[in-house]
Amino acid sequence: MAKIIELKKVNKWFDKFQVLKDIDLDVSSQEKIVICGPSGSGKSTLIRCINRLEEHQEGNIVVDGTELSENTKNIEKIRAEVGMVFQQFNLFPHLSVLDNCSLAPIWVKKLPKKQAEEIAMNNLKRVQIDDQALKFPGQLSGGQQQRAAIARALCMEPKIMLFDEPTSALDPEMIKEVLDVMVDLAKGGMTMIVVTHEMGFAKEVADYMIFMDEGKIVERAKTKEFFENPKSDRTKLFLSQIL
């Protein structure tokens, strides 16, 4: 399969502290990858580099054939193709859920309003909150907000979806409804990179697991192998604590 994301020798520093060390990563189209690791290991920074919410200082990142560089137009093009879901949802509180979803298609993709709202409604239906379309984000529960955020990202019809700990800010009861949506999405063939501690979810959908520690990719393995037969001691220790 074609490589849709390629990272080569990516290094990144926050001031003098190195957060990413020589990251090499290939992701093929339709692959699902789950990244796990202790906090501060650089997982979030890594996926934020993929749509350049963070800038890397060394190495190359190529997304869908476009190299990420200073060129602003390139970045905006990539961002329109890469959907991102945040830990804190980051819905726009001054807009209704429907407007949250239709805003970017109207202003970035220049779709007519009617068509954009149709797409928005379809995606809200997909995450099962189409009945909340006219409410404001503040009126929804955490789980509903996160599903709305997923729908918002889907409305741009992205080729890749990035999830940055999408369930970490949720009540246990609401985690499931969000994970269900993500499982659905995975079955639909979306390319996904997910940072999460939900190992059940990882076992169910991930093609590959990546374990990061101290800015490095410690282990990259097929999901089954990763859980049953981890190679490095650091991974074993982590898994023994989390499972």
Binding site: L91, V108, M156
Partner: peptide, 18 residues
């Protein structure tokens, strides 16, 4: 404004002015 609002806008492909 929380930083997340800027990031969410950027992640949807909106430029500075938009």
């Amino acid at each position: 404004l929380p930083k997340g609002q800027y990031e969410a806008a950027r992640s949807l492909g909106m430029g500075y002015w938009k």
